[in-house]
């Protein structure tokens, strides 16, 4: 569990969430979000007061229906097209490129 309270956010707590989210925040953003996330969650705290004993959660409102289809090979996105928007790609090898991760 992250070490921070229900709705009061320290700068360290904000930095810990930012690390989970792969977001680099500057000092001003950390201060701003520490205050604003607290405000928004304080408002959301009224939801905590509702009695939900025995109430199932709703994750999706899709009525159940069959979505199976035959498992057939069909044309798909061309490899060059799939790579065309990459900031860095090896088109000949058909690969996306990232900074070196193995020493």
């Amino acid at each position: 569990m992250l070490a921070f309270g229900m709705t009061a956010f320290t700068r360290d707590a904000v930095a810990a969430i930012a690390a989970l989210a792969n977001l680099e925040l500057d000092a001003a953003e950390i201060d701003l979000f520490a205050r604003q996330l607290g405000d928004i969650l304080a408002y959301a705290d009224e939801v905590q007061q509702i009695d939900t004993t025995g109430v199932p959660p709703t994750a999706s409102v899709v009525p159940r229906h069959a979505v199976d289809r035959p498992d057939e090979v069909r044309p798909s996105l061309d490899r060059d097209e799939a790579l065309a928007n990459a900031p860095d790609a090896a088109l000949d090898a058909g690969l996306f490129k990232v900074p070196r991760v193995i020493g």
Partner: peptide, 12 residues
Amino acid sequence: AYYLKAQQVRTL
């Protein structure tokens, strides 16, 4: 406390 609870209130 937050996500699951919100989904339950969504049901309500």
